[in-house]
Design a protein around this nucleic acid. Structure first.
Length: 459
RNA sequence: UCCCCAGUAGCUCAGUCGGCAGAGCGUGUGGCUGUUAACCACAUUGUCCGCGGUUCAAAUCCGUGCUGGGGAGCCA
């Protein structure tokens, strides 16, 4: 007989004479002549109640089943007379696949997120993390679905890169040199290394994506990204996933339109396809989450310039720990004030001073600002960072000179501006930060299966 | 990396002025019950984070290290 998943059984409209389910016991309660157990197989948040009758030949074993044990149940799906569930299974036969000993760390009670992080290999067996990672899976799929519907192509940008100056922060070095030998000799020659030069893990697929946007039109990359920064916050991990769309013939406004459409699409998808899992978060993680989601989907996002933002902050009358000053990058408290307090919804900030932004962003006519765009959202801060790219070769080369970047290393990048250059735009969206946004989870370590942070790479 | 807070039973935490190590939950045993975070009774569990110091005496005070959390910087 074929195993049926619990998600499917719970959605049944009629009783069934014979079903086969397999899963893990979440909890068990004994009655005089039978035992109730909650069975979960990971297919959905809900458990199915299984009733084992004393007449089962292995009933003596069944009543010893502990939380975490794995069983296989053959029985009848019947309407439940008890409160709290529509269906239950009356077991005709029960195989114990494996018993979990009494030191199984997950108890049938609430555990702290901090404790569950220390058992990251077991936490997906809890309601909250099971729901979290089903949502994560569904959102990854939704990204591909969104882009397929829009005619974008999915680009696999390289994870190992030769560029050591992409400007997005500290990189992880990739090498197969004998480091012990290097240490004793005190000499290290990158030309002896695997690639004949320095290599690092990627901090962004953007430059690759630009090349393909200027070929396939609209593309996106979606994959792991690495930052070796020693940042210990609830919003940073060393390995995370980033979505980076890149669009030819697209200006800054088109870029913002796209970002807004993306977030609305993904959020709506989560509300429709992950309703049950999401309900756990609206109930137990963030009581105001329904409202957050509704704003994300229904409200038009605010669009202001950096100068207007500075103006709002200065006129707010609020005392900030860091002084607001034109020409200086906004601090976390400023970003949060704008999105959380002032607008109470996502807000695009554009036209940043060129002095605080990277070389590839398009210089505006004022020659002071660039066509950058950040999307700030309540609680998280920056969730999208992007720009219209500088497509004019001479302007780009001037900028690189100003910033002391070696043109030779970027010969191929500059080639794209030499041969059929067109206006184009793109951005990066932190996938984990998006998951935090729609679930209300406040620590990024809790939306990553096995998080990597400074000093921590267990599992 | 900087600032702040914490570390006591498997988990969550209390522990007063420095004077015998505690509770709830879990787990085990028994009872009860179409139960559902079941309930009732009894039992069980300690490197009080490590190292050093002060003291007749340290979970408690001091120093230091480690780990975790919150915030900041950097960013997605």
């Amino acid at each position: 007989m074929q195993r049926v998943k619990i998600k499917e059984l719970l959605g049944n409209t009629t009783a069934m004479d014979k079903v086969l389910v397999k899963g893990w016991v979440r909890t068990r309660r004994d009655s005089k002549t039978f035992s109730f157990m909650e069975l979960n197989d990971g297919s959905c948040l809900k458990n199915i109640q299984v009733i084992a009758d004393v007449s089962l030949d292995n009933y003596a074993e069944v009543v010893k089943l502990t939380t975490g044990s794995a069983i296989c149940v053959e029985g009848r799906l019947v309407a439940s007379p008890g409160k709290g569930q529509k269906w239950e299974i009356h077991a005709d036969h029960m195989d114990i696949i494996s018993m979990a000993p009494e030191d199984y760390p997950l108890q049938k009670k609430r555990h702290s997120d901090e404790f569950l992080r220390t058992i990251a290999h077991l936490r997906p067996r809890t309601n909250k993390y099971g729901a979290m990672f089903r949502i994560r899976s569904e959102m990854a799929l939704a990204i591909h679905q969104f882009y397929r519907e829009k005619g974008f192509r999915y680009l696999h940008a390289p994870v190992i890169t030769g560029s050591d100056c992409e400007g997005a922060g500290e990189m992880f070095r990739v090498t197969n040199l004998d480091l012990a030998g290097v240490a004793t000799s005190g000499k290290m020659d990158p030309s002896d290394d695997f690639f004949g030069q320095e290599a690092n893990l990627t901090v962004s697929g953007q430059l690759s994506a630009e090349m393909f946007a200027l070929s396939l039109g609209d593309v996106y990359t979606f994959g792991p990204t690495f930052r070796a920064e020693n940042s210990n916050t609830s919003r940073h991990v060393a390995e995370f996933w980033m979505l980076e769309p890149e669009m030819a013939f697209c200006d800054l406004d088109g870029n913002m339109d796209h970002g807004e459409e993306l977030i609305k699409y993904l959020t709506r998808h989560a509300m429709e396809q992950c309703e049950e899992d999401l309900s756990l978060f609206t109930k137990f993680v963030d009581k105001g989450l329904s409202n957050v989601l509704s704003v994300l989907v229904n409200e038009p996002y605010e669009r202001i310039t950096y100068a207007q933002a500075v103006d709002i902050l200065l006129k707010s009358g609020k005392r900030f720990e860091y002084k607001v000053e034109s020409g200086i990058d906004l601090q976390s408290e400023h970003e949060r004030f704008l999105a959380e307090v002032y607008f109470k919804k996502p807000v695009f900030l554009t036209h940043y001073p060129k002095t605080i932004k990277p070389f590839y962003m398009r210089v505006n006519d004022d020659n002071e600002t660039v066509a950058a765009v950040d999307l700030l959202v309540p609680r998280i801060g920056e969730i999208i960072g992007g720009s219209q790219r500088e497509e004019r070769l001479d302007v780009l080369e001037n900028r690189m000179n100003e910033m002391n970047l070696p043109g030779e290393a970027y010969w191929w990048y500059l080639d794209s501006r030499r041969f059929g250059s067109v206006p184009h735009s793109g951005f990066g969206m932190g996938f984990e930060r998006f998951l935090m946004l729609i679930t209300g989870v406040t620590n990024i370590r809790d939306v990553v299966p096995f998080p990597r942070t400074p000093g921590s790479i267990d599992f």
